[in-house]
Computed example of a mutant assay.
Amino acid sequence: MAYISAMMDQMLVFDRRQVRRNRDRAAADFPAHDFLKREVTERVVDRMRDIQRRFPRLLDLGSHDGSLRQSLDPELGAEWVVSLDPSERFATLASASGPSVAAEEEFLPFAPASFDAVISCLSLHWVNDLPGALLQARQCLKPDGLFLGAMLGGETLHELRAVLTEAETEVLGGAGPRVSPFAELQDAAGLMQRAGFALPVADSDLLTVTYANAFLLMHELRGMGEGNAITARRKGTTPKAVFMRAAEIYHERHAGPDGRIPASFQVLYLTGWAPHASQQQPLRPGSAAHRLADALGGTEQPAGDPAAPGRKPH
């Protein structure tokens, strides 16, 4: 039993109570810091427009203040939008414009096949069991329903991560984790397949924002609700000298001619569909109507035969 408990603890990369506290704290002043959420939400809605389908029943998974509801065009046909966020304060804000619920993304309180689409903007990078959360999202969908998620990826805040690690090492003699580990693009489509989505696609954008200094960047992250919530984070108060040194290194290494520093946000977009018989299916092995050798103008060699004379294997 102790061994199983230890394995479970290792899986808890994020302190979900701290995630909720960070988001609760950010809720009151979120409109002053929601530029990234608004930008990514608009890009997600653009992708929905390109699909040219209607989605009468929609779940906004990790909704923050519920702003996705206001961004949806009438032609998308969203008649009933439910906002879900782990923060009670964000869920309360979202309830001003429609139904909302405070719940965890990993424990969805909905019956199977409840929604035509599940949309998630900038929330799933705080989930401990991402494959499990994606699986539950897929189960919430009607057959041929759409999942479209946007989450922060591995290149996010690489500048800040590096300078904080260096500053802590210099000042304290060692560094603790201060910026969330993020999923990589090459893993994203595999996660969608593992969750049972059909036709999974993953791609990414890199958004760069500039700040006058590192302190304003860290203040912005706090205002977004994106403060440190890693379970293994250093507990207690960090000496001011760490942040002062980090700001110095950041400016020395990254400041532009105008003195402003860049902050990178990589956004991964995950798209997939709940399986349905009408969807395109891969051909059965051996069912091709034309031979590849004919298309290439070559000679077909049975598997295991030596290479043709005069041709070296590569």
Rank of each mutant, 00 (worst) to 15 (best):
R233P: 04
D205T: 06
A229D: 02
A263F: 05
T169R: 14
R194I: 02
D129L: 01
M151A: 13
L172R: 11
F265N: 11
G149A: 10
M151H: 07
M151I: 12
R260M: 09
G132E: 00
K235S: 15
D144F: 05
A167E: 07
L148M: 12
V127K: 00
V201T: 11
P181H: 05
Y211T: 08
A246V: 07
G256D: 15
Q136G: 08
I249V: 06
L134K: 01
E170C: 13
L160H: 08
D258H: 09
A195C: 11
V163D: 04
R178G: 12
P143T: 10
A202C: 05
L217G: 03
D129F: 02
F215T: 10
R253N: 03
P181W: 02
G190P: 03
E184I: 01
L191Q: 10
A133S: 08
G196I: 00
V267P: 00
Y250M: 07
L268P: 01
A162Y: 09
H158Q: 08
G259P: 10
Q136K: 08
V171A: 01
F197N: 09
T237F: 13
Y250V: 00
A214Y: 11
M192H: 01
P143C: 07
E168H: 12
P177V: 09
T231V: 07
M192S: 02
